[in-house]
Design a binder for these strands. Structure first.
Length: 346
DNA sequence: AACGCGGGGCT
DNA sequence: AGCCCAGCGTT
């Protein structure tokens, strides 16, 4: 149990942070709304995704799916199309499921209660806290990577952030710092400080509003925090695809929701042996994933018989498409890049 | 509690 | 080449 004086110190840090945010907070498109739908979408998009990377996707997504009803009524495929290139595709699938959930279980009105928000597919403790605090003023910290980094540095706290207990541990610290009736702004402030000042590498401690209170800074040990024990060990994975073409058209099929690239489109992985004689080139694409070194082999096969092309497609459930049409489908990045390359060749 | 899931940027 | 990013669901 901490003393009253320490609690006052905690609150002081929270107020410094909030004051900084009101002047230096980022001007982002979702900062001017309390619409829980929009906040929800942006929270999901920006999970494990940098703001610059997802900003255009956010705008396009909101423009096409301006509310829960529109999203719920959309085709699964189109939701994925608007997610194209973002990665972690189960986020898009869960988003769609949750929209249906809101329509069916909550009569189309976005739930306002924390536990109801948490019950939505793809919404975990962080996202539920963010929506609750920003849209409904619930006093609850939205603890994410920024909280871990900022708090562990301010208190020179070596609590291992890879432990599942870290969420609760830093939630309690954050709650003691949180000013009354400012939960949403406080959470946003922590995100902005973590992104603009208290960055993972080369933090701007000289201009940090918390540098007088930051223990790690005063000890010259900012780089030692946060402490994270888990090390990711990349494994190798090889995939083979065939760009089977006849007269400008080629074959695709939708993936299942197993493994990677859930429900995205891909080329045939295997072709009959007699197709091998029609290979015109072979490209090796190296693709870096978070925990995998991916090597994708792509063989371009140009068939000279429409009959064989159509028969192969029909017997194996492939869709016949072309480069123009394929813009309306969501493909994994390596295949997307390959098609761009083919298009440029023409 | 540990692991898998994308893609991009930074060092 | 490794780490990190407005994390979550599954096992």
């Amino acid at each position: 149990m901490k003393s009253k004086k320490q609690n006052a110190d905690f609150l002081h840090v929270g107020e410094l942070l909030l004051a900084w945010y009101k002047i230096h907070g980022r001007d982002l498109p979702f900062r001017n709304t309390n619409d829980p739908y929009k906040i929800w979408i942006c929270e999901i998009i920006f999970q494990q995704t940098r703001i610059e990377q997802g900003l255009n996707h956010y705008s396009r997504f909101i423009h096409r799916f301006p509310d829960v009803q529109t999203l719920a009524e959309a085709e699964n495929d189109e939701v994925l199309l608007y997610w194209k290139g973002l990665g972690y595709y189960s986020r898009a699938l869960n988003l769609h499921k949750a929209a249906l959930q809101i329509v069916r279980e909550f009569q189309g009105k976005f739930p306002e209660n924390y536990n109801n928000i948490l019950s939505l597919k793809g919404v975990g403790k962080y996202t539920a806290a963010a929506i609750s605090s920003i849209c409904f003023g619930t006093k609850i910290p939205a603890v994410d990577g920024n909280f871990y980094r900022v708090l562990s540095r301010v208190f020179a706290d070596d609590f291992d952030i890879s432990k599942s207990k870290a969420f609760l541990y830093f939630s309690e610290l954050a709650l003691r710092m949180m000013p009354e009736n400012e939960a949403g702004h406080f959470n946003e402030a922590m995100m902005d400080l973590g992104s603009e000042i208290c960055k993972p590498k080369n933090p701007k401690c000289e201009i940090c509003p918390l540098n007088k209170e930051c223990l790690a800074f005063s000890l010259g040990k900012v780089h030692e925090f946060p402490v994270k024990s888990k090390k990711t060990k990349p494994t190798d994975l090889e995939l083979t695809y065939h760009y089977v073409e006849f007269n400008g058209r080629f074959l695709i099929k939708r993936r299942g929701d197993d493994f990677i690239w859930k429900r995205l489109y891909e080329f045939p992985t295997e072709v009959p042996a007699e197709f091998k004689t029609e290979i015109v080139h072979h490209k090796t694409v190296l693709h870096k994933l978070t925990h995998r070194n991916l090597t994708v082999q792509i063989y371009k096969v140009i068939l000279n018989s429409e009959e064989i092309f159509k028969k192969f497609a029909e017997e194996n459930g492939f869709i016949i498409t072309d480069l123009e049409e394929s813009h309306q489908k969501s493909f994994p990045k390596p295949l997307e890049n390959y098609m761009k390359w083919i298009e440029d060749e023409i």
